[in-house]
């Protein structure tokens, strides 16, 4: 669970969303929700669907939890949150099965696992259960977007290097050159590749953020 941020209470909706997108980015600042970040990123289209599902789940459950925040007893609030998330995840699950049955077969387990995705529960606990509706929705949406943007980055690298394609589209000469002579960079599609690419993405982003913070402090 991320540490509750004391100054978040006064944030406007826009600020709340932007904070989640970069300064408090769920993946490389708070290191939450890594499981699905690794599992679904070997093809960009799967990743896009997963991100859509997560944005929907964080936004809608933030809305619901925030609306119910004054009526939920403290002691059962985690259980209530989990059930609310579960309802929205089931909506995602059914929609995906109806429209993208092939992809659903591959990532069904990970869609179900949005329920225990710590990003969603973390935002509900740290923000939506204490704040008015509008900022909560913005905060949930921002967290989902922040997660999605790191995931898409990882997916671009993995699909490009692993299959030589983008969104499954053949990139003409590049794909032929990359996958020609029976040479393929299998490791990028297999589990270890996921760990390495995410590690590098986290490294670059954290390094950049740290340097900026150091520069800002030096300026004062």
């Amino acid at each position: 669970m991320p540490p509750a941020n004391s100054n978040q209470a006064e944030l406007s909706p826009g600020r709340a969303a932007i904070a989640q997108l970069w300064h408090e980015n769920p993946i490389f600042r708070q290191v939450l929700g890594i499981c699905s970040a690794l599992a679904v990123t070997n093809r960009m289209f799967n990743t896009l669907l997963m991100c859509g599902g997560l944005i929907w789940a964080t936004t809608m459950s933030s809305l619901t939890v925030s609306l119910l925040r004054n009526y939920t007893p403290q002691r059962v609030r985690i259980m209530v949150s989990v059930l609310i998330i579960a309802v929205y995840v089931i909506v995602v699950d059914i929609t995906m099965r109806a429209f993208f049955p092939d992809i659903h077969r591959d990532i069904a387990a990970y869609v179900g696992l949005i329920i225990t995705n710590c990003i969603v529960l973390g935002r509900l606990e740290a923000f939506a259960s204490k704040n008015p509706t509008l900022p909560s929705v913005a905060d949930g949406f921002g967290a989902g977007l922040g997660y999605s943007f790191v995931l898409m980055l990882v997916a671009v690298v993995r699909e490009l290097l692993g299959f030589g394609t983008l969104f499954g589209f053949d990139l003409g000469g590049f794909t032929g050159w990359w996958t020609g002579n029976n040479y393929q960079w299998v490791i990028m599609i297999m589990p270890p590749g996921a760990f390495f690419v995410l590690a590098v993405v986290v490294w670059v982003m954290r390094g950049y953020a740290l340097r900026k913070e150091a520069a800002a402090e030096g300026g004062k």
């Binding site: 490791i187 270890p192 590749g193 995410l198 590690a199 490294w203 390094g207």
Partner: peptide
Amino acid sequence: IPAGLEGPGITLIITGIMALTFI
């Protein structure tokens, strides 16, 4: 370890190597 790589970064890389060995 480089500052940006500390914590989650280096752990992910080690996990990657571990995953390789488990293959």
